[in-house]
């Protein structure tokens, strides 16, 4: 198969890769670029473990072709922390024990961040529906929802302080 050359930005860095026409973005990230933070739980768009953002939009990377990434900005879990500083969601997930096995965690963090970017003050039900595309079999979601609520509260307090 002849490879396709693709130019994109991943977590802000310019990246050039070659992929086959039928290769998903998830395969490219995992198998060609060594970014194994996005997981394959189903490859049919049903579990959310492969979540990334494309130009800020939450996407299942198993449903996108690698070639489609041309010219776009891809955000993955590997880009979520700022150097040594974890993102508040990452901190609160650990604090609240919102992960047991942790396989779903990268996907949940990407989805939760994208939710809070759009809606910094979500109700419990908005959080639950916002994360309904991500499956977790270990936690029963309780602690995940609480972690997200806690982060949202922190963001509100910060804003109040700044204002």
């Amino acid at each position: 198969m002849s490879g396709i050359t693709v130019n994109t930005k991943i977590n802000g860095d310019p990246v050039e890769f070659i992929c086959d026409a039928d290769e998903t973005l998830l395969d490219v990230l995992r198998n060609r670029l060594g970014l194994t933070g996005a997981k394959e739980g189903c490859s049919t768009g049903d579990c959310g473990a492969c979540s990334v953002t494309i130009d800020g939009r939450l996407t299942c990377s198993c449903l996108v072709l690698g070639a489609e990434a041309e010219g776009h900005n891809i955000g993955t879990i590997e880009g979520m922390a700022n150097g040594e500083e974890l993102h508040p969601l990452q901190k609160k997930f650990i604090e609240h024990a919102a992960l047991q096995c942790g396989i779903c965690t990268p996907g949940f963090l990407i989805a939760a961040k994208s939710l809070l970017d759009k809606n910094p003050d979500p109700t419990e039900s908005e959080i639950r529906f916002g994360l309904a595309g991500n499956l977790c079999r270990c936690t029963g979601y309780d602690k995940i929802v609480r972690a997200v609520q806690d982060v949202a509260k922190g963001m509100r307090n910060n804003k109040a302080k700044r204002a």
């Binding site: 194994t36 933070g37 879990i77 979520m80 922390a81 974890l86 997930f93 650990i94 992960l99 942790g102």
Partner: peptide, 23 residues
Amino acid sequence: TRPLRPDGIDKVTGRAKFGADAS
């Protein structure tokens, strides 16, 4: 008590290596 888990940071940063993550 409820201390932070030792593998937490690896798992929230995507660094933790699961079955399919090795080559």
